[in-house]
Computed example of a mutant assay.
Amino acid sequence: MKRLKILIVDDEPITRLDLKEMLEENGYEVVGEGKNGNEAIEKARTLQPDLIIMDVKMPEMNGVKAASVIRGFSDCAVLLLTAYSYRELIEDAKKASINAYLVKPVKERELLPAIEIAFSQREQLQTLNEKVKKMEQKMEDRKKIEKAKGILMKEWNCSEEQAYRQMRQKSMSNQMSLIKLAEQIIERS
């Protein structure tokens, strides 16, 4: 199993130290620490962690705002820590696509499952995003094939089935993918 790279961001040095010890004792790699939202953003860019454990209330920029910015360039999981459990804060965290939320003081028996769940959600989201990209590519390819068929139907005054059959035959005889052939037909028209 891959060793998770974790960034800890909290304005309290003792909290960062406690978290780092808990994490390293349990086999996680702490790749960096920060004390505010701006440092979280900067370190997330440079260190590319798998997970950020971040306090909500910090100077300069809070954890929810920092997480929103980080979501713009990273798909790392984010676990928020706070001494507060206000409903409004929970709603803000959901809008920022936070993966997990723990109320301080953090106990190891709560932290470790939250990390695993947050990371699992991250992996599921990555898998889903990859599937969406593949489906989008298939749709684009299909559109090109349909366009090429339309061009051949006009040029040869033939049916859709005949145009497609001709494309398939040419694709196989030239050992070329159907999409490459479609792109050539579109390009020359």
Rank of each mutant, 00 (worst) to 15 (best):
L47P: 00
A100D: 14
P59A: 01
A96M: 01
F73Q: 13
S85R: 11
C76L: 13
Y86C: 04
I53A: 07
S85G: 15
I53G: 09
G63I: 05
S68R: 13
I90P: 00
V64S: 05
Y84P: 06
M54T: 15
A83I: 04
L89W: 01
S97A: 09
S85A: 15
C76W: 03
P59M: 08
S74G: 12
K57E: 11
T82I: 05
E88K: 10
S68A: 15
E91W: 04
L47Q: 07
R87E: 09
L81Y: 03
E88R: 09
S85W: 02
D92K: 14
E88V: 07
S85P: 00
S68W: 02
A67K: 01
S97Q: 07
S74K: 07
I53N: 00
I53P: 05
S74T: 07
R71Y: 04
A100V: 00
V69W: 03
M58P: 02
A67V: 07
M61Q: 12
V64H: 07
D75G: 12
M58Y: 08
D50R: 04
A83Q: 12
A67I: 02
I53L: 02
I52H: 04
M61P: 06
I98T: 04
P59F: 11
S68L: 03
A77L: 06
I90T: 03
A67L: 07
I70L: 10
A100R: 05
M61S: 10
P49H: 14
N99V: 02
S74F: 06
I90L: 15
L79P: 08
K57N: 15
A66F: 06
M58D: 02
M61H: 05
A77H: 10
K94L: 15
K57L: 10
D92E: 14
D50L: 03
L51G: 04
E88W: 02
A93Q: 04
L81Q: 14
I98R: 00
V69Q: 14
C76T: 13
L51I: 12
T82K: 11
E91F: 13
S85T: 15
L89E: 08
I90Y: 08
I90M: 14
T82D: 14
Y86A: 12
A83V: 15
V78I: 15
S68C: 07
I98M: 02
P49E: 11
L47C: 06
Y84S: 13
S68H: 07
R87C: 00
V56F: 10
I90H: 09
P59L: 05
P59S: 09
Y84I: 14
A83P: 14
R87Y: 14
F73Y: 06
Q48A: 14
V56L: 10
N99W: 02
L89N: 03
K65Y: 09
M58Q: 09
V78S: 04
E91Q: 08
D55K: 12
F73L: 10
A66H: 05
A66G: 05
K94S: 03
V64M: 03
V56S: 03
N62P: 14
E60T: 04
S85H: 11
P49K: 05
S97F: 05
C76N: 11
V78C: 03
S97R: 09
G72W: 01
Y84M: 11
V78G: 01
T82H: 07
A77C: 04
Y84C: 06
Y84A: 11
